[in-house]
Design a binder for these strands. Structure first.
Length: 256
DNA sequence: AAGTGCCTCAACCGCGGACGA
DNA sequence: GTCGTCCGCGGTTGAGGCACT
């Protein structure tokens, strides 16, 4: 499932990303953040366009990107959200921690789309169609969707294998990754690095549930989650919160 | 074992919105 | 108000994997 590498007329590389390119991109973002995608490849030493770098980061390299099979809860949520939002994949993705819009879009086209027209293919779909039968009234529909979102999101969050480290203090960050403390922090917002200082972040959608998971599911599969980083030879200093159990991204150390 | 077709998913393309000059 | 630039989004494609014949 890879595209043959090629070069466009401007000499920019297209196609599959190599491990070397991944490492360069991650190395650069770890140090400088990703405030300007257009300039990033030039400064990072990549022969790629900014859009390609952004896409690679968002869909593959970004921390907390959840890879692997979709759970029933996720499928259920996607179906409900698609009923209310249509093909607004980025909107839908905001309700699925760790999933990218691209992944959800692929999931829809490859599986759920056909299942929605033929519920026999997917029991979750059949149930959804049953429960949402009388959604003519818009108010009822909104209520149903909202309650379903609450339930489904809780299900996902309770079963998610993802852990996100507690947010470090700015001083910790500056000591571990020079440059990050100058407003170029790693955020967990959709698709990009937030410019909001890390210390000011608290209690948002991305951190709260994972903090809970971090406490409850310390033995989850961080190896899987960090696979791209391990493969690239990136190591993680222990979290100041719990050195034994956690992994650490915000102040990650990259071997050179 | 070889051929074929479908499935999956990473990546590209083009458009539109936001924003600043 | 217009233009240019940048970014994000949704649609589409390319190619490997895999099941089936």
């Amino acid at each position: 499932m890879v595209r043959t590498p090629s070069y466009d007329k401007n000499g920019l590389k297209k196609g599959t990303w190599t491990r070397e390119e991944d490492k360069k991109l991650m190395d650069y973002i770890a140090t400088h953040g990703c405030s300007n995608w257009r300039q990033l490849p030039k400064h990072a030493g990549l022969s790629r366009c900014g859009k390609s770098c952004r896409l690679r980061w968002i869909n593959y390299l970004r921390p907390n990107v959840r890879r692997g099979n979709f759970t029933q809860e996720e499928d259920k949520l996607i179906l409900e959200l698609h009923q209310s939002h249509g093909n607004r994949w980025s909107t839908i993705a905001k309700h699925l921690p760790g999933r990218t819009d691209n992944e959800i879009k692929n999931r829809w086209h490859s599986y759920l789309k056909s299942s929605s027209t033929n519920p026999k293919l997917h029991p979750i779909v059949a149930n959804n169609l049953k429960t949402s039968k009388h959604k003519d009234d818009k108010t009822n529909e909104e209520v149903n969707i909202n309650s379903l979102l609450d339930n489904a999101t809780n299900d996902i969050l309770e079963s998610t294998p993802i852990v996100t480290p507690p947010l470090p203090s700015p001083s910790t960050i500056s000591s571990l990754a020079p440059g990050i403390n100058s407003g170029k922090s790693f955020g967990l917002e959709e698709g990009a690095c937030s410019k909001q200082p890390i210390g000011e972040r608290s209690g948002d959608f991305w951190t709260e549930p994972f903090l809970h998971d971090f406490e409850e599911n310390v033995d989850c599969s961080t190896d899987d989650l960090l696979m791209p980083f391990h493969e690239l030879g990136i190591q993680y200093p222990p979290s100041p919160i719990d050195e034994e159990k956690s992994f650490w991204f915000y102040g990650m150390h990259i071997n050179k």
